[in-house]
Each structure stands twice: as C-alpha cells, then as structure tokens.
Amino acid sequence: MGKLVEIRWHGRGGQGAKTAALLLADAAFNTGKYIQGFPEYGPERMGAPITAYNRISDDKIRIHSNIYEPDYVVVVDETLLTSIDVTSGLKESGAIIINTEKAPEDVKKHLKGYKGKVCTVDARKISEEALGKYFPNTPMLGAVVKVSKVMGEEEFLNDAKGSFAHKFATKPEVIEGNMKAIERAMQEVKGI
C-alpha cells in the first residue's frame, strides 16, 4: 500500500487556507494521486480561525473524518500559534511550516516541545513583493510542496501555472506574481 500523506492547514477566514488546500489537492490529483481536500466548516467570518485538510495517496482514500495525526501542519497566520494547539497530534517524522519572518528556532517556544522539523517562510514579505498584496496562501502552498515532497517540484510548478491560468482567466496579470510567490517560497523556506 502506498504512503498516505495527511496535511492540516490552520489559517484565518479570508486568507485562503481552504483555497490553498484545494489547490494542493488539484496539483496532487494532476500528478496521478488520489486526493481529498476539505475544510472544516464553522461560522465563517473574516479573521476567525479555520482549519482545512488534505489527504494525498497512491491508493484510493476511504476514510472520511478530520485529520488528528497529520504528517504536516501549515500555519498560514502566526498569531494562531498562541491561540490554537497547532502541533496537536503532529507526527515527529513530519514538519510544521509557519508563515513568519522569524527563524525556526525563534518560534519553537510556541510549539509545546514539538520535536519534529520546524520550517518558516516569510509569506507576507514574499506576497507583498511578488503580488503587491498580502495573499499568504500561494507562498505557503509552495513551501508545503517543498518541505513535504508530496510531488516533484517541476511537476508542481508546471501544474500550478496551468491551474492559475484557469483560475485567473479574467485577471491574467496576477498569474506571474503568484508563480513568482510560489517559486520564492520554495527557495526561501527555512529549516528544511
């Protein structure tokens, strides 16, 4: 049986964590995998903490529950580190990827002694420089692919370009910026 990779996303409403989970599912699907991408729905408000999930596998996925022991956790908003137990159940063989300007060793104190890999990426800076606006989800998507290796980098970049061309058919000017944001996040993510 092929390896099942489980990813949990923590973000705030409006930051695009759900969209990022669906984009990751799409990209993995396009490389031939079985996938699930689903958000945990609550009272949806801008700024409220939200959770989204991915399962990626070589085999058919039958389980239908939330993810309690993820291989990877992505934190799209670092203010969640002090309010949400982001490392809950996170496997030590995996990693947590946090959007922050800080270095991995500087955020560890918030991670309740998590012994696995801690990676950070400054998605705000990347997004603002590449897109001119703060959309942290695309750089985080690049970072999670880089850290988790759920698919080949080239394969992923080609696919992302295609997805953006489709998603932003009416605003092609943002495609290049989003691609740049992903590529930079893949280069700049720290702690691998």
């Binding site: 689903f38 729905y41 996925i61 239908h64």
Partner: peptide, 12 residues
C-alpha cells in the same frame, strides 16, 4: 450523501 463530509470534500 453526507453534508460537508462528502458534499464539500474534493475527491477523485
């Protein structure tokens, strides 16, 4: 089908 669990989950 199950609301959210399958209705809002993207699967193959």
């Amino acid at each position: 089908q199950d609301g959210f669990i399958t209705s809002h989950a993207v699967e193959n």
